[in-house]
Design a binder for these strands. Structure first.
Length: 531
RNA sequence: GCGAAAGUAGCUCAAUUGGUAGAGCUCCAGCCUUCCAAGCUGGAGGUUGCGGGUUCGAGACCCGUCUUUCGCUCCA
């Protein structure tokens, strides 16, 4: 579909997803829920296959990587330790005229600072007038200064009360009452104050109050960190080793858009790799290469990928890069590879009071980044808190990458077009479709018996409606790599035709060969061997 | 969040100035028996996203709201 606009192409993808049962908007009959989507009967298969390929490549193919599946709910302190609670707790307000966004607390603090300036000016003026001037005495006795002081205290009290009660309307009212104007537009045309916390929360127990608020995890990584010691001990894992996990995460995005690219509920596939301090950069480089190779193995095109190295790093990282993919709307992040240092495990040590260290007879060095002093201090130390290299990929984004790269509108000889989903066969929802050429003469019966034998090992479609040409095109549109057609010759010599999605060519093969052909062409082994 | 555009059948789209909501594909029941979406007959599917308003009359005009796409903004 290279001859149409990217925007239209993207709309085609969204339509295709709906028309063929890949993705539906959540709660569509109720007008939908913003930035939430459901996977349909085709989508769930494709998504599962992508997830399986990742899992096999990461866990099954690495003896030193194991998988876990942790709960979405975690102890609230987890998110204090990880920094998520503090990083996103700002009340924000917009000025409707300048369209600038401010932190409401900053606006109020600036207003207070202005009043303090006035006090200082009074003090300065007075200092010039009197000899032996006592500033403190002046402040506590001068009427005008006292007025200012009272005002400041009143504002601060009111603001603190409002914040503690989480009363955002009151916060806005304070701004209006103080007649704070936007520094840019100079107007008082404010929106409501909103608390932009990225984490969703709910509560446990029957009674909702402050004490039992619980968050929906904004990332799966923390479930791995808090289980690090459990897995290391019970699995007798030796550093370096990894823990992998796939699962849902939730972020209350302010702007969530671009179909399934940025959703409020999404699925991550993460692997945390625990390494010896000082070796993290070589593992970081190793995983950058390994993960890119994995993406390239899908065969969507080398030119569709690039690295983006982060210059500005998150609070936990000392190196970070994205693998970006060329989506219909441009190059965007698909996977992140981060060197998270010992930040997370150190934080969990501190908040939980539990040691999260690894003992290594051969290791001599600083216990961790915070306590590193002189070599003298660590000459008898053989323990350390591991450093972590993380690979984190969004499954839904990967789904979109695969689907949008695979969807092609082909021009055929004779002016015909065909819509075909060039999925890697190992990822295709159906591995094959089985058709009787016509719906009589015992052909459906033979087709069904073939299906019965093969369906133990393969996801199969069966179709006897409409002309066979139409049926081929239907399977093309959902990416089925092979169509097996039973014709009159099949009844005589036990052969069928097998039609290839990409070339539309047909071979005649023995029914008895079908199982091995499909195994060879559609299993993940081929992909995995290429890694 | 701001701005722009859009929302009509499962999908893609029509509907003159405000005057009876339609087509193709799909789907269903048959006929035909065909190797690349194209034959024949019949049928189903709609409170025009939702809620108000103007009007004798609204898919169309006005207001609100929801959803989507694009641009800005944001993205630990």
């Amino acid at each position: 579909m290279s001859n149409i606009k990217p925007e239209d192409f993207f709309k085609n993808i969204i339509s295709h997803c709906k028309e063929y049962g890949f993705i539906f908007q959540s709660s569509e009959i109720y007008d939908g829920l913003s930035a939430v989507y459901d996977y349909g009967q085709m989508g769930v298969e494709l998504k599962k296959n992508i997830r399986d390929y990742w899992w096999k490549a990461m866990v099954q193919m690495h003896e030193n990587i194991v998988g876990i599946d942790t709960a979405i709910f975690m102890h609230p302190t987890t998110w204090k330790a990880s920094g998520h609670v503090d990083a996103f707790n700002d009340p924000l307000i917009d000025n409707k005229d300048s369209k600038k966004r401010y932190r409401a607390d900053v606006l109020i603090e600036e207003h207070v600072a202005k009043i303090e300036d006035k006090i200082n000016k009074e003090v300065e003026k007075a200092a010039k007038r009197f000899e032996n001037f006592d500033a403190e005495m002046f402040k506590s006795t001068n009427g005008r200064v006292k007025e200012y002081q009272d005002k400041i205290e009143a504002i601060n009290d009111r603001f603190k009360t409002a914040l503690n009660a989480n009363n955002l309307e009151e916060v806005k009212q304070i701004i209006l009452d103080l007649e704070i104007v936007c520094p840019v537009s100079g107007t008082k045309n404010w929106t409501d104050v909103r608390q932009f916390n990225l984490m969703f929360n709910t509560s446990t127990g029957a009674v909702t109050d402050e004490t039992n608020i619980i968050y929906l995890r904004p990332e799966t990584a923390q479930g791995i960190f808090v289980n690090y010691l459990n897995v290391q001990k019970t699995g007798r894992m030796k550093i370096p080793f990894g823990i992998a996990q796939t699962g849902k995460a939730f972020r209350n995005e302010i702007v969530a858009r671009q179909f399934i690219f940025r959703m409020r509920e999404f699925e991550q596939m993460e692997m945390q790799f625990f390494v010896k301090p000082g070796t993290e950069m070589e593992w970081y480089e190793y995983w950058k290469k390994a993960r890119l190779k994995w993406h390239l193995s899908l065969g969507l095109g080398v030119e569709k990928y690039r690295f983006h190295d982060h210059l500005k790093l998150a609070h936990y990282a000392n190196a970070a890069a994205d693998i970006e993919h060329q989506f219909p709307f441009g190059f965007k992040e698909l996977e992140g590879i981060h060197s998270r240092t010992d930040f997370d495990l150190m934080q969990h040590e501190e908040f939980s009071g539990k040691k999260l260290q690894y003992f290594d007879q051969d290791y001599t060095g600083p216990m961790n980044s915070k306590l590193a002093k002189t070599p003298e201090d660590w000459k008898d130390n053989h323990s350390f808190v591991p450093y972590v290299v993380e690979t984190s990929v969004g499954l839904d984004r990967l789904f979109l990458a695969v689907l949008s790269s695979a969807l092609v509108e082909e021009s055929l000889e004779g002016g015909d077009t065909r819509t075909v989903l060039n999925l890697p066969p190992a990822l295709a929802p159906y591995k094959a479709a089985i058709f009787p050429l016509v719906k009589k003469d015992g052909l459906p019966e033979l087709a069904e018996s073939i299906m019965k034998d093969l369906k133990f090992d393969f996801m199969l479609a069966y179709d006897e409606k409409d002309t066979v040409g139409k049926r081929y095109r239907r399977q093309d549109a959902i990416g089925t790599p092979f169509c097996i057609t039973v014709d009159h010759q099949s009844l005589e010599d036990k052969t069928v035709t097998i039609r290839h999605r990409d070339t539309m060519k047909q071979d005649r093969v023995a029914i008895s060969e079908l199982h091995s052909i499909l195994t060879e062409k559609t299993s993940m082994q081929g992909l995995l061997k290429g890694l």
